[in-house]
Design a protein around this nucleic acid. Sequence first.
DNA 1: TCGATTTCCTTAGCACTACTAACTATACTA
DNA 2: TAGTATAGTTAGTAGTGCTAAGGAAATCGA
Lengths: 152, 152
Amino acid sequence: MLSNPITPIAERPEPERIYLFVQHFGRRLRDIDARAGLTPARFSALASLRIHGSRNIGELAADERVRPPSMTRLVRDMARDGLLVRTPDPADGRGVLIELTPTATALFDAVRAEKIALVADFLRTLDEPARAAITLAFAALDDLAEPPEPPP
Amino acid sequence: MLSNPITPIAERPEPERIYLFVQHFGRRLRDIDARAGLTPARFSALASLRIHGSRNIGELAADERVRPPSMTRLVRDMARDGLLVRTPDPADGRGVLIELTPTATALFDAVRAEKIALVADFLRTLDEPARAAITLAFAALDDLAEPPEPPP
DNA sequence: TCGATTTCCTTAGCACTACTAACTATACTA
DNA sequence: TAGTATAGTTAGTAGTGCTAAGGAAATCGA
């Protein structure tokens, strides 16, 4: 049974503090995207293309766990804004190949670097035992971030 | 300089693995909201009201870092859906007091419990040193989630 | 090989949530 | 009390998710 009103964050059980950290820090990360003029969906699509180099609509939609029509529109709007280029897939007449423009690559790299710096600068303010604990903790937590297998 | 293509996640620097964990696990948390029929904005508004008991539009907007018109509409739609109740503020003729309905309280508590359980169940799969590292790590990381002071 | 099916993507339309600009009504203050 | 500040709303725009429906290319099976 959960009490009412709810306890201050610092007194809540550890599992809750973990998910609250994720929610709060996630908002801070989205603020970085927003200041760079990127919506979360756009940043995420850029990341997928930055890793894979080239992607078609269906792959991007699967990466982002979004339906194809949503990705069609996102790609159309981002192409309109000069962030990516669509070319017909020479190997499949139904498909499209999507690639980043140099502008988008530079923008993504800058935002990524800012996020890394935000965390890295913070880590430098901590003492060595805390940093060691963080290294161990995130190694252990990796599997928590993975979504369960989607049904076939 | 960032290389192209980008390195696999497991080989990236620790700061990046932390923000990627937040992005990935955040998505999993939003999936829980979605399965309960809650959008992220609604879950967040519910959380604010669950903690504070009663809130007006401006306070809720500030809590959620959203502009008042966005909160006006969110509250209107959530009231329409039976999640909260608006009453005129007896102390300020311009204001409105917003409170959760019992339905919304129960729904929020269930979603919160599911998120806690997701993390708690995972933590139980870890050995004791890993759990200890996680406790230390999140104590150290609390300040990273806090946004910097907003300008006056 | 030809018809049926599957796959890839798109169009159309709805829902939700963010924004700014502009407005009303109430409260405060000098 | 006149002027200003504050609380909230309305109106209009943009972005992102969805489903339904459909065209076109690829593939499969008889």
